[in-house]
């Protein structure tokens, strides 16, 4: 159903909403190492924003700063105008959900249970109501299950609801991570390399899934190495090199920026922050 949706890259300020996420001047230092250097990033409602950069550029660290896993050394991250708390579970509650670069499912729980765990912040039942099991408890549990099944339906995993998460094939584990993140009813979804290790067909399917997520009104910020995936998908792309934001703009702007090419290919170029040896493997992914 999502394949037919036409996709037009939108300019920097999306017409359909103001800034949802606003990171300004984020600096993350680990001892003497500055992993993220003064990065500003805005994600607007209904937008898909890409974050690319060579390995070690600080993309995942920046993600962790956004989701409260790390507390930025300097700078602020605000969501819908309020500064985000520095605890991951509060960030999720505020409306930002994420997936992980290395799949981090609850391997020994069933697919359905994984999604139900994602519902945690949107349900209230504590220990006492679980012990007493009144009508309210049953109602909430049934509603949670119905919503979780809906999400599994959405990601195409409904038939495997009772399988253990560890027994899913790789591509479906990725999908389940997205379903689990969506269960917390986020306004913004952060995807950390959602197509890593996927074949072209699976990548295509993920692309459609991300569009479908966006069409549900969820903004998406995605880290990826697959350039075709990024440039097909994103309204805007930001390039991070050695912790600094090099350039930000539409796919065309980024693709034609010589500094970006230099950062990936390692060609000497004046004023490039990434003048060290960088991997060329990234280009091979760019099918």
């Amino acid at each position: 159903m999502t394949t037919t949706i036409p996709h037009q890259p939108t300019p920097e300020q999306a017409p359909d909403g103001g800034p949802l996420l606003q990171a300004s001047g984020v600096i993350m230092r680990f001892g003497g190492l500055t992993a993220v250097r003064d990065v500003d990033l805005t994600v607007n409602t209904g937008e898909i924003v890409g974050l690319i950069g060579p390995n070690g550029a600080g993309k995942t660290t920046f993600f962790n700063c956004l989701t409260g896993l790390y507390v930025p050394t300097e700078g602020t991250v605000s969501y819908q105008g309020t500064v985000l708390p520095s605890k991951p579970h509060l960030v999720t509650k505020a409306g930002i959900a994420r997936t992980f670069q290395n799949i981090r499912l609850f391997a020994n729980m069933t697919v359905l249970e994984n999604v139900l765990v994602g519902r945690h912040t949107r349900t209230r039942e504590g220990l006492l109501s679980a012990l007493i099991r009144g009508p309210g408890y049953h109602r909430a549990e049934a509603a949670s299950r119905a919503r979780a099944m809906e999400l599994l339906e959405f990601t195409g995993l409904a038939a495997k609801a009772d399988h253990l998460a560890r027994n899913l094939p790789y591509g479906e584990q990725r999908k389940l991570e997205i379903a689990r993140a969506l269960a917390s009813e986020p306004g913004l979804l952060l995807l950390d390399e959602p197509t890593a290790g996927m074949n072209p067909q699976e990548t295509r399917a993920t692309e459609e899934l991300v569009f479908a997520v966006r069409d549900q009104g969820v903004a998406v910020l995605v880290i990826e190495h697959d350039m075709r995936f990024i440039f097909n998908l994103c309204d805007r792309v930001a390039v991070l090199v050695q912790g600094e934001k090099l350039v930000e703009g539409t796919s065309e702007v980024v693709q034609q920026d010589e500094r970006v090419v230099a950062a990936y290919l390692g060609e000497p170029f004046e004023g490039t922050p990434g003048d060290g040896p960088t991997t060329t493997g990234e280009q091979e992914n760019d099918r």
Binding site: H89, T92, V117
Partner: peptide, 9 residues
């Protein structure tokens, strides 16, 4: 880590 990222305190 994943559990806290899913909103569990």
């Amino acid at each position: 880590t994943a559990a806290t990222a899913m909103g569990i305190n």
